[in-house]
Design a protein around this nucleic acid. Structure first.
Lengths: 157, 157
DNA sequence: TCATATCGGACTCAACCGGTCCGTTACTAG
DNA sequence: CTAGTAACGGACCGGTTGAGTCCGATATGA
C-alpha cells in the first residue's frame, strides 16, 4: 500500500529538479533524463502528463523544453501524482474506478472514508516546497495552513 | 496509490466481523466466508496470515475456527494490513524490498521519509475500534493517545 | 529547410494479484 | 476408536497492470 507508481516518482523528481533551476529555466527531456538517470521515452510521457495537468509549460522546436508553470510552493503533492494514479483511495469501495459489488452494505466504506478524507486533507496541504528544501519546510510548515487546522486523526474536528 | 490489497480488505472485514460477536466466540472460515461473501479458499489464507501475526487464535477440528486474540481496541490498523502488504512505503527508496539503485544520491529519499514517518505514526495510533463503531471512535479518539501528540504534518514536533 | 523537441499511439514483457485446487494434519464429538 | 470437521499450506493459473520501448507525426527556431 501507499506506494506510488514509478511514473509518479519520476514526476516528483522532475519537478524537484526544475524547481532548483533558475525560475524560468527551460530543460529538455533528453537533458533531464540524462541528469536524473531516467529512461528518456518514459520521462517524456511523464512530462507530457504534467503539462496536460497544467503544471508545466512546453515549448517545441530547437532550444525548447519544459519549465514550471508556477513556483514549487504553489504546486501540491497531489497534483503532481494524480495524473499517474488512477486510484487514490484506500479501499475499493471509494473511487468510481473499481467494482465494489457490496456497494450498499459495504462495512468498510464508512470507517475507511474517515481515514480517506483525513489523508487527502494532509496531502492537499503539502506542497512541492518540501522537496526543494525539506528542512526549511519542516520547521516553517506549509504556508497555506492556518494554525487552527492542527488536528490529528481521530480527534474531534 | 494508497490502495490496499484485496487480502487486506478481507482481513479488515474479518476482524471487524469477529469483533462484533461475543468476546470469545469462535467462527469457522466457511461461515465467515458465507456471511461476508468472500471466496472461502482465499479467506482461509487471509485468516492463516492473521493467525501467524498473532491477531487470531485458531482451533482445529469439529466445532473449531478462529477467534480474536485481543479486543479490537488493542489491534492496530497496521498490524492487520501488514501481513498482506510487502511494501509499506511511499517511494521505492524506503523499504528494503525494492531495488532503488540511486540509494545514496536519491533526491526523494529525504523529503519522503518525512512524509513516511508521519503516515506511519498516524496509522500506529489507529485501532480496529474505528471499524466496529466509527462514530464513537471519531468523537472520543484513540484511547492510547496522549493529547500532546496532536501534531499535524509540517508543524514542528 | 533542416535539425530539434514535443506529442502520442501501439506494443512488449514481466511481475503481481486474486482466486482455485488439493492433499495433509490435527482435533473433537459421538 | 473412528469418522467427520476444520485449519494448514503448497502448487498452480489466468488476467491485469505497470515499466519501458519504438516510431511516426507535428511544430518550431536557427
Amino acid at each position: 500500500m501507499f506506494k506510488v507508481s514509478r511514473k509518479s516518482e519520476y514526476a516528483l523528481m522532475a519537478i524537484q529538479h526544475m524547481a532548483r533551476l533558475a525560475p524560468d529555466a527551460v530543460v529538455s527531456v533528453a537533458d533531464l533524463a540524462a541528469q536524473e538517470d531516467i529512461p528518456a521515452d518514459l520521462l517524456a510521457k511523464v512530462l507530457q502528463g504534467l503539462k496536460r495537468a497544467g503544471l508545466l509549460i512546453a515549448s517545441k522546436g530547437a532550444g525548447g523544453g519544459y519549465r514550471l508553470a508556477r513556483p514549487a510552493g504553489e504546486i501540491r503533492f497531489l497534483e503532481v501524482v494524480r495524473p499517474f494514479e488512477e486510484q487514490i483511495a484506500v479501499v475499493s469501495c471509494h473511487s468510481p474506478v473499481t467494482d465494489c459489488q457490496r456497494t450498499d452494505a459495504c462495512s468498510l466504506r464508512d470507517p475507511m472514508s474517515v481515514l480517506n478524507a483525513y489523508l487527502m486533507r494532509q496531502f492537499e496541504q503539502m506542497t512541492m516546497e518540501l522537496f526543494v528544501s525539506p528542512h526549511t519546510w519542516l520547521t516553517t510548515g506549509p504556508r497555506t495552513t492556518t494554525p487552527a487546522e492542527a488536528t490529528s486523526l481521530g480527534r474531534r474536528a
